[in-house]
């Protein structure tokens, strides 16, 4: 068992983990931050995306011990200081970019990472970037719209 310490959503967090404990398990089970979801076991679905030192990471592909000393951001820390939805979260609600909500935390975290690196992506760039995030409900249409809207752009489509 190993002691790990990290900063999660701006607060220090410490726990004892096995060597094999994944960051996703540490967040969900030890810290009870259950907003980070696990939808597969081959690191494909992206429901578990968090930011580690500002970079989007699938938390099921990283050991908790590897995140020792890191700054971790999860969906629980994304809202504005007053508790209101941030720009990306609000765009997802405004454009119906979620249905069952299970993939949503990963989608929001990926979208945030995308827009940080590329504040005005094209529709094609958004779709390409979401390669590692699977949604089974929305058909992606409204997720793409939401991310474009969060970047201050609109998606050209013939009709709604």
């Amino acid at each position: 068992m190993t002691q790990v310490s990290m900063t999660v959503n701006g607060k220090s967090a410490t726990g004892t983990v096995e060597g094999r404990t994944l960051l996703s398990s540490f967040l969900r089970d030890t810290l009870e931050l259950t907003g980070t979801h696990v939808g597969c076991d081959t690191s494909q679905c992206g429901a578990c995306v968090v930011h580690v030192n500002g970079v989007a990471v699938k938390s099921c592909t990283m050991l908790a011990a590897e995140a020792d000393g890191a700054e971790v951001a999860t969906i629980e820390g994304q809202a504005n200081a007053d508790g209101s939805l941030n720009v990306i979260q609000q765009a997802f609600q405004d454009h119906h970019g979620l249905q069952c909500g299970f993939c949503t935390p990963g989608m929001v975290m990926s979208a945030a990472a995308l827009l940080k690196d590329n504040p005005k992506p094209t529709e094609a760039e958004v779709r390409e970037y979401l390669e590692g995030n699977i949604c089974r409900c929305t058909g992606y249409h409204n997720i793409v719209k939401a991310i474009m809207a969060a970047s201050g752009q609109d998606v050209a489509i013939a009709a709604e």
Binding site: T36, H37, V38, E76, L85, F92, Q93, L98
Partner: peptide, 21 residues
């Protein structure tokens, strides 16, 4: 109408079965 359930799903406050211990 915008979906009221979205707020909990967008903030990590959903209550899925695996979140129950």
């Amino acid at each position: 109408s915008k979906r009221r359930e979205d707020v909990r799903f967008l903030t990590g406050a959903g209550n899925y079965t695996d979140d129950i211990n």
